[in-house]
């Protein structure tokens, strides 16, 4: 039989890449998560994780910071996106750039700068680790909230808001009954783009809290740094499950509507 080139062969490099760098490592994580230091199958890591109150606290703190960051970002980002999407400004590329640009600057550098500024105003990681971390997180993730919100806001149907007002809704009621539901796709994208990344990030909390706040990301890093591969893998696996759960939770709502997110 003669070899015939088919278009599907183009996908081979990607399949190899997928297998080598995504699927195989996943199996490694799963393997390490459910084995002991000698390599035999065991629930040791799981048991250790769930019996260790410190670990539980890490999850709780991470969840707290993530939810707070997301909420603060939404509260700050929503009006900004709304204003930017208004006719008067939405051709003003420079203005929009200013809000998006921080995203393109190396974030290690940004975090270092944030730390120095916070230090200068007396919010050191030693004294106020939680507040410092929160400020750093909000600063870092705000563009990720503004961008998807901005792109949905551009598509807001003003006549719907007029219709709501026409039917008796006061400006505040119009906002909650129409503007928010209309921008839901953007809000969902914004949440997916902040909630989970904040939980798993570790550079920001590490640098700004001077090691006083441990998030899941930090905890995984510490486990691996101390050669506790099994514990680290189990935490990573747990994080992965959490991510999948939120994705699953938000996707259901997204399906019917026009997707206003980044992708």
């Amino acid at each position: 039989m003669k070899f015939r080139f088919q278009r599907k062969y183009f996908s081979i490099p990607y399949i190899i890449f997928l297998a080598l760098f995504i699927i195989v490592p996943m199996f490694f994580i799963a393997y390490y998560a459910f084995s002991n230091s000698s390599g035999a199958f065991s629930f040791e890591a799981a048991k250790k994780f769930f019996t260790d109150p410190a670990k539980f606290q890490v999850i709780l703190v991470s969840l707290f910071i993530a939810i707070q960051t997301t909420l603060i970002c939404l509260i700050i980002g929503y009006p900004i996106a709304y204003i930017l999407a208004k006719k008067e400004y939405n051709h003003n590329v420079v203005l929009i750039m200013l809000f998006i640009m921080p995203m393109w600057i190396n974030f290690v550098l940004r975090t270092a700068a944030t730390r120095d500024i916070l230090f200068a105003i007396g919010l050191t990681g030693g004294k106020h680790p939680y507040v410092a971390t929160l400020i750093g997180m909000v600063y870092n993730y705000l563009p990720f909230v503004i961008l998807p919100l901005y792109s949905t806001m551009l598509k807001l149907d003003r006549s719907q808001m007029e219709a709501a007002a026409d039917l008796g809704a006061s400006p505040i009621q119009v906002f909650f009954k129409n503007t928010i539901p209309q921008s839901m796709p953007g809000i969902i994208s914004a949440v997916t783009m902040t909630l989970m990344p904040v939980m798993s990030s570790y550079v920001i909390s590490d640098a700004l809290s001077e090691g006083n706040i441990t998030l899941i990301g930090n905890s995984i890093y510490l486990s691996f740094a101390n050669s506790q591969w099994n514990n680290g893998s189990f935490t990573a696996l747990l994080l992965l499950i959490l991510v999948l759960l939120t994705m699953w939770g938000t996707n259901g709502r997204k399906s019917e509507e026009v997707r206003g997110g980044l992708w």
């Binding site: 149907d157 006549s159 719907q160 007029e162 219709a163 709501a164 007002a165 026409d166 039917l167 008796g168 809704a169 006061s170 400006p171 009621q173 119009v174 009954k177 129409n178 539901p181 209309q182 839901m184 509507e257």
Partner: peptide, 27 residues
């Protein structure tokens, strides 16, 4: 507008896509 006893049928209807027929009418 919300204080006027006047209602409008808009050019492109401006229905609320996130609500079903019942909720649109009951709005």
């Amino acid at each position: 507008p919300y204080k006027r006893p006047i209602n409008t049928v808009f050019q492109r209807y401006a229905l609320f896509p996130h609500l079903d027929v019942y909720d649109n009418v009951a709005f």
